[in-house]
Design a protein around this nucleic acid. Sequence first.
RNA 1: GCGUCGGUGGUAGAGCGGUCAAUUACAACAGACUGUAAAUCUGUCGCCUUCGGGCUACGUAGGUUCAAAUCCUACCCGACGCA
Length: 429
Amino acid sequence: MSIFNFKIEKKIPNFLGRAGVLTTPHGEILTPSFVVVGTKGTVKSVTPEQLINNGVQVTLANTYHLYLQPGDELIRDAGGLHKFMNWNGPLMTDSGGFQVFSLGVAYGKEISKVVTVTDPSLLISERSSVDDGVPRLATIGNDGVSFRSHIDGSLHYITPEKSIEIQHNLGADIIFAFDECTSPTENNRYQEEALSRTHAWAKRSLIEHKKRELIKDTTPAILEVQPQLASEVVPLGFRTPSFPQALFGIVQGGRSEILRKKSAEVIGSMDFDGFGIGGSFAKEDMSTAVKWVNEILPEEKPRHLLGIGEPEDLFMGVENGVDLFDCVGPTRIARNGTLFTKNGKINILNAKFVKDFNIIDSGCECYTCINYTRSYMSHLFRAKEMLGATLASIHNIYFINKLVSDMRKSILEDNFFDFKEEFLKNYLS
RNA sequence: GCGUCGGUGGUAGAGCGGUCAAUUACAACAGACUGUAAAUCUGUCGCCUUCGGGCUACGUAGGUUCAAAUCCUACCCGACGCA
């Protein structure tokens, strides 16, 4: 019944990995696939045409940011986020759950999505040591989260129901349950407490979503239209999307095998259209966590590893049964002058590139590499010209999408591990 | 020619007797960035170092002082004003 058909085309023998096709109201996503992040309804410095021309199938925007600016109701009235941002392909929105983390415990600290430590046991700390008096913009309650706007300081309260309401107003094809992304530095007791909250919020998100989908199905064209206005008079505005939206539940559980598996069972048994795997990881924990979870989640539904996007991590995820990834990495590092090449990342601001008239990555067929040299890129970045950010983003977006697309091809051609070995040998050398 | 003001590290520009190898910004040189608080942030930025410190530096040359980028004298250079 759902038009969110997910078809698995081929599996990696004896592994969890697979290649598939996920159908959405705005087109198919060939998986595994990389989702480019456009938090505020734009992939920074890149137009939708440039995204499409460089291999992007699907983009992801953010509930929290768009709710604050320009407002979800405005976007609804504009005809939905697809139309507003001129992205007509598959579109996702994150729930704001990551901001519970990034504007909460992680605010003003050296904690990020992936923590690199040599000894993971160092991560276990008392909550009090994390809470060192640095003011936070997000405070967690059992019913929801209070956010202090990072834009103007105003106070906002987001509950699971509110997050779903916003995401229905925004109208992406795939939306996420409201969750609490925890820091790997939290102790086990806190992880357990946060997990039960995330599970309760998942259920509430699902109920709210179903309720809204039901109304949508019965009166698809005139939902929330003022009675006196016929739908043809208000062709697109003033209504949530007339197409169904998919809701993905999010698995958490920190570094604990017990909690991760428990979460996969609890979330996996709920009637979600797919699943996100969330949390901030210690790098060395990531593969085990993903594996524990994907062994339990229903095989026939798509899985999205939230916020992960380093090439080596993408191989890990695909091998362990992840279908979708999103990550700010490729575009953020691009804006800061770091570019992917098959032989590893380069910082185009380094002195050695000033007179390097080669292209960024030999053999690359992206718009940037077809037309420009490392020397020119170096010049744009040194001169702080805007085009530098655009051309660098285009290159990194092309690179990462090509990489995942090649992984998919290798699964279909039964040589995933050969491809992985060959790529990583060059990339990590 | 006289007068006035000024000459500080790659640049601009603080400092105006000790706490000055010299605030700050920019440039330069590196690094970081993983569901975007991010076109951002961090470090280095005279030479040497066993990292304690040592040496050479604020136009040039002298001088005063326990101590000078800071005060005095002469000279050189620049800007402006008057001839």
